[in-house]
Computed example of a mutant assay.
Amino acid sequence: MATDMTLIWFSGSPPCWRVMIALEEKNLQGYNQKLLDFLKGEHKSQEVLDINPRGQLPAFKHGNNILNESYAACLYLEEQFKSQGTRLIPMAAPEQALTYQRMFEGTNVLKNTNVIYYEWKFPEGERHDSSLKRHREALTAELKLWEGYLEKLGAGSYLAGKNFTLADVVVFPCIAYVFRFGLSEKNYPRLAGYYGLLKERPSVKTSWPKNWLETPQAEDKLKDI
Rank of each mutant, 00 (worst) to 15 (best):
A155F: 15
S70G: 08
L197N: 03
R180P: 06
T3Y: 00
S13D: 01
V170L: 06
S131R: 15
L110W: 08
F38C: 05
P173S: 05
L36T: 03
P58G: 03
S207E: 00
L49C: 11
T86V: 13
L166G: 05
R190P: 00
P209W: 12
K34T: 12
Y194K: 10
K26M: 08
T3N: 10
S11G: 09
K26E: 02
E79A: 13
E200H: 11
Q46E: 15
E185G: 08
K144T: 12
V115D: 03
I21W: 07
N187G: 12
M103Y: 04
H43E: 07
G156K: 01
N64M: 12
E142A: 08
N65C: 13
K199W: 05
W208P: 03
W146V: 06
L159G: 02
V170P: 00
N65L: 15
V48R: 08
R180V: 11
T107K: 14
F181C: 08
S70C: 01
E214C: 04
F172N: 00
L213T: 05
L7Y: 01
N65T: 14
L23I: 02
K111S: 14
D37Y: 10
T215C: 08
G148F: 12
P189T: 15
K152S: 14
G125K: 04
T107R: 14
V171A: 05
G148S: 06
P202D: 01
A176W: 09
L7G: 07
M20N: 01
G156N: 11
R87A: 14
A92L: 11
Y177T: 00
E47S: 14
K186Y: 00
Y31T: 15
T3Q: 07
S130N: 09
M1G: 11
M5P: 10
W146E: 04
T140G: 09
M103V: 02
E126K: 13
Q96Y: 11
Y158F: 14
P90A: 07
F179M: 04
D129V: 09
L23W: 01
K152R: 15
H43K: 05
H43W: 03
D220C: 10
G196Q: 08
Y194I: 05
R136A: 13
Y117E: 15
G154M: 10
K186Q: 05
K133G: 04
Q29C: 09
A218Y: 09
E69A: 10
I116K: 01
C174F: 14
H62L: 11
A93T: 03
D50F: 06
T165F: 02
T99Y: 05
R127P: 04
D37K: 12
Y100Q: 07
I175D: 00
N187D: 15
L36C: 03
Y117D: 15
